[in-house]
Amino acid sequence: MCKFYNLLDYDINFININESIVLIEKIIQDKKDSAINSEKFEQLDKLRFKKRQIQLELNEIRNFNQEYEKYKNNINKMADSLQPIDYLYKNLNSQLINSYQSKLFLANLSDSLKDIKQSLARKKNPPIDVQGEEKKLIQELKNIEIEIDFLRQSINNLPNMAEECIRIGEISNELNSILSISNVRGDINKQDEMYKILEKNKKKLLGICGKTENTRFANINLLNSCIQYYFEKFKNISDFKDCKVGFNTATMSLNIFSLSDVSSSIPIITGSQSNFMILHLCFFLGLHRYLLNTKSDFVPQILFIDQPSKPYFEREDDSAKLLDVFFLLNEFFNTLNKDKDETFQLILLEHAESHYWENHKMENFHLVDEFIGDNALIPKNLLKE
């Protein structure tokens, strides 16, 4: 077999069995050593895991920064809203009924204004250097991506060892079969060695199972971050300003929560068909963004959307919301990482006219056909009377 697969010269003649066994074992070992080293794959997996961890930390820092800024803005707004209190307090007789209840009410508001001003005066910066930490993580992410690209390139440059590994496996099995006939003890030793390997793999797998909950939590946070990214793209959803989305794994539904009441765990009622359509699009675009980021091979990179304009022809401002929808779909393709050869197809069936995307130069839209009159999706000449 070694000679047939050009692993040995045809002119070689074996003097004895021991010599042939030593030579064949050397061929097997040399070919195994020249195969792709599994340590490179382990190193690549570690780098990818570290990259995901840094991306999660970046998302947390950015979310913290956004919420901290919104918190400061809310405090300032509250202070501004209480500014007229001093005027009312000084002009009580001319502006309000001069009563004990009025004086008590204005006094409470005045105390609240003083507390807010004192809070603003002694407010401290965040406990961490957010911008500095963000820059540091971004640089770490770039360095890891460079390492991943270099390692992936080194693996791709290695020769294709698949067929040769199969041949070596066949020769190794044949040799083991021959040796097992005359060397039972060697076979027992190999079984013991295999048992140790299986025990080692068992411990490794049990360790992975213990980390499942943490991995699940991290992936849900990453999914919410991807959905939130598209949710914040809508400019004409005044009902949901300063809100965030959260995927509920128990009900398998997408909920909306108010950022102004961070202690509340009760989701906001979404209401109209228009709002449900927004959540529908944000979820599926965010889901596919998450799948692209995690390099999932189990879900096709394609999405069908049927007439998202259906809820948007009731009021005048609905046309603006519909335009936001088309901008969002166009933006989705702009967020794909072209350098990583990410591909995606979105098939849109729509009743809205093409001027929505043509007048606004949405470069990712491509009109395939218009079914108007006799040019129907199913041509009339194919229908039997």
Rank of each mutant, 00 (worst) to 15 (best):
Y100R: 05
D45I: 07
K310L: 09
D129A: 04
I266Y: 09
N63G: 08
F64V: 05
L141T: 00
E232S: 14
L179W: 03
F234A: 09
N91Y: 06
V325W: 00
D30G: 13
Y10E: 15
N91G: 11
T249Q: 04
I54A: 06
Q301N: 04
K233F: 13
F313K: 10
F332Y: 09
L47E: 10
G373N: 06
K338R: 05
L382I: 06
G169V: 03
Q55P: 03
N18F: 00
E199Q: 15
G210I: 08
L198F: 10
I181D: 12
S263V: 04
K103C: 04
I278V: 03
K31G: 15
T249S: 07
M277K: 04
Q101F: 14
L367W: 04
R185V: 15
I227K: 01
E69C: 06
L292R: 02
S274L: 03
L141G: 01
H288Q: 00
L336F: 06
K295Y: 13
S177R: 11
T212V: 08
Q55D: 14
L292N: 08
L281D: 08
L328K: 04
D192K: 09
L8Q: 10
S354N: 10
K50S: 13
Q153E: 13
K72L: 12
V22G: 11
F332S: 03
Q55E: 14
S34W: 07
A250V: 13
L367M: 03
I61P: 02
M252W: 03
H355V: 05
L303T: 04
Q228C: 10
F365S: 00
D306V: 06
P127T: 06
S177F: 02
N108C: 06
E342S: 04
D374E: 08
S172M: 01
L328H: 01
E350S: 02
S172Q: 06
S253N: 13
K204M: 09
F365G: 01
E331K: 02
N176F: 04
L106D: 08
V22D: 15
S260C: 11
E134P: 12
D86M: 01
S258A: 07
I171V: 08
K135C: 00
C209F: 11
N73Y: 11
N73W: 06
N201P: 05
N293G: 07
S172T: 06
N59Q: 11
P84C: 12
E350M: 03
T335R: 08
